[in-house]
Amino acid sequence: MILPFDLIIQIFVVICAVAAITVKDLLSAVMILGAYSFFMCLMWAQMGAVDVAFTEASVSAGIGTILCIAAIMKTTRRTKD
């Protein structure tokens, strides 16, 4: 585990998590959640869990984001909080 790289990734992960739940547009929130998933998979890759990292990158960041975008296109993007 490389310490400065790990700290930078963790700061980005926390920023993405806070931004994903505070932004007022649902499509932006889902996009920031995809960025969160990719930062998380980067963190796991440098922690030695390469299999978990590429499963997260393909399944959670890929298919999860696509499912969320499809659901938002079928409903609405506007939100009050």
């Binding site: 739940i21 929130a29 959640l33 659901a71």
Partner: peptide, 20 residues
């Protein structure tokens, strides 16, 4: 959060934290 999609995003973050 009162929006349902925001709740689902929160659930995703929760599960990812446990995996971490």
């Amino acid at each position: 959060k009162r929006n349902l999609v925001k709740k689902i995003i929160g659930m995703n973050i929760f599960q990812t934290a446990i995996i971490l």
